[in-house]
Design a protein around this nucleic acid. Structure first.
Lengths: 135, 135
DNA sequence: TTGCGTGCAAAGGTTTTGCATGGCA
DNA sequence: TGCCATGCAAAACCTTTGCACGCAA
């Protein structure tokens, strides 16, 4: 169970620095762009390999979306967090809310399904887009 | 608002026949295989184009998953339907349950988010896999 | 010095697109 | 006959992988 031997390379540190600042999820391309903008040169292959490691270590969770994969941090106190993606503007927001607990309980007790909110992205229409279409 | 002129081609009918039989969602590859098995020759490009049309017409909903896209039928009476995908066995099942209504209401009233269950896939661990890992 | 991590380039899979042809109405 | 739909092949796109080299420990 020991953490596999890991080298603290320049690239690893740069990626970790970016990830630590993210409050929502991000794509591999966004990470790549941010690193380039910061003057860090990290190849895409390395980015994918590091993201894979961070996912295996439990720090990140990979999520499938319409446009490709994105990753979000797994914070230990985020048990009641869901991602909401607007079908219209594409923005992703968080819901961190105890009201969702009944949903977990119901799925678990009645449908024998243990939901994993970290991997789940809810689709719908956000407030701004909803108002816009009403107007 | 009239339905765009559509030709009832052999391929269109074959795809429609397959889609009508599906109770859960399916991938483009599954559709292609099924058509081949049925002796229908339909190119992949046509399959994707037909699926796109069926989605625009409101008959199908496209869903992004880890392994690629899949499509499911939009039945008018499926308001309370969610898709559950097991992270372990990969199987996709349905929940069609009024108990989920409070979730919709809460997201709508407190978070101004109108969820679209048809496009949403919940990830977690299904009953069989949960039991297996407990054993 | 050891061997993990990296970069590059090539390969992989899925989905889209261009263009000439086919077939429904 | 008109024109949408199709097939094929090529392209686009994201992601993974092979291999030689670099670098942390």
């Amino acid at each position: 169970m020991a953490t596999p031997k890991t080298y603290l390379t320049q690239q690893h540190k740069a990626i970790l620095a970016f990830v630590s600042e993210q409050s929502s999820c991000f794509t591999a391309a966004e990470l790549s762009d941010a690193l380039r903008a910061a003057g860090e040169k990290v190849g895409l292959a390395t980015i994918y390999r590091q993201l894979e490691k961070l996912e295996k270590s439990g720090m990140l969770q990979r999520i499938a979306t319409e446009e490709g994969a994105c990753w979000q941090r797994c914070d230990q106190d985020d048990h009641d967090c869901f991602l909401l993606k607007c079908e219209q503007c594409g923005r992703i927001s968080h819901v961190d809310c105890l009201q969702l607990a009944p949903l977990y309980d119901h799925l678990s007790s009645s449908h024998h399904f243990a939901i994993n909110p970290r991997r789940t992205m809810l689709y719908g229409v956000c407030g701004s887009c909803g108002e816009a279409s009403h107007a």
